[in-house]
Design a binder for these strands. Structure first.
Lengths: 134, 134
DNA sequence: CCGTATCCCCGTAGATACTG
DNA sequence: CAGTATCTACGGGGATACGG
């Protein structure tokens, strides 16, 4: 997938590219990436990686998400096999969401992404200010 | 960041919170994530991680992107300090894009993401089929 | 070759109100 | 509590045509 190419700058030997074996040159990649790369999925996955949570708790922990979007996001993640949904026949009703094994396998990556964003948030802010108004 | 703890089945007792290191409880995270998490950025970053490329080459390598969206994506990445743009006064004109050091620091994460998607693409497809039509 | 400028569509997402 | 239902808007993004 991502091309094999040598960089002229110094000794930057890039780590081996994992994506050479892609069937349709990235379309499938994009398609799947859209699933976990939409507006809320990564955040929800990250929060659920701390353990199972019920709907309302999740709603409180995802800042700014609407009830509707949380529902939709969870449905999509459930459909894609990343999140599982358990309904407990109680009063009051209780629904718990948790990561499936597939979802768990995303933990490290999501955390890495979150870490990067955390580490470089300021840097990006500064770059944007330097760039001026766009 | 996202909590690493294990949760018992009832979440009555407040568990150690994810996102503790974020100033505004995740909003900044989402804000920054939107930048690199839009429709094309991750793909462009991944492809540029193979080395500098000119516009037309990039255009060919990002399957399905329109000229307009490639331009916009590159501008945003440039603004955020992830990509740099070099214009060479030649005939025919040549413009090269490459990752900045900040962009390079994203390489591992982007590749991890790409790897995950590659590894689990099929699995997700299957899950979606099992789930039925939505 | 490397873009900008326009037009326009349609999906995403918010607000609000209502149910099991 | 845990969702649906509906209505609406906003803007992302494609198609196309044109400029440097």
């Amino acid at each position: 997938m991502f091309a094999e190419h040598t960089v002229d700058t110094n000794d930057v030997t890039p780590p081996p590219h994992p994506c050479e074996t892609w069937p349709d040159n990235g379309r499938g990649f994009r398609e799947t990436l859209d699933r976990i790369g939409d507006k809320w999925s990564v955040l929800v996955i990250g929060i659920l990686s701390g353990g199972p949570l019920r709907f309302s708790t999740l709603h409180r922990r995802v800042p700014g998400i609407s009830q509707r979007m949380l529902t939709l996001t969870l449905r999509h993640l459930e459909r894609d096999g990343v999140v599982s949904r358990a309904v407990y026949a109680e009063v009051p009703p209780r629904v718990e969401y948790r990561l499936t094994p597939l979802g768990e396998s995303l933990r490290a990556t999501v955390h890495a992404l979150a870490q990067w964003v955390t580490d470089h948030h300021e840097e990006i802010e500064n770059a944007r200010r330097r760039y001026g108004s766009v």
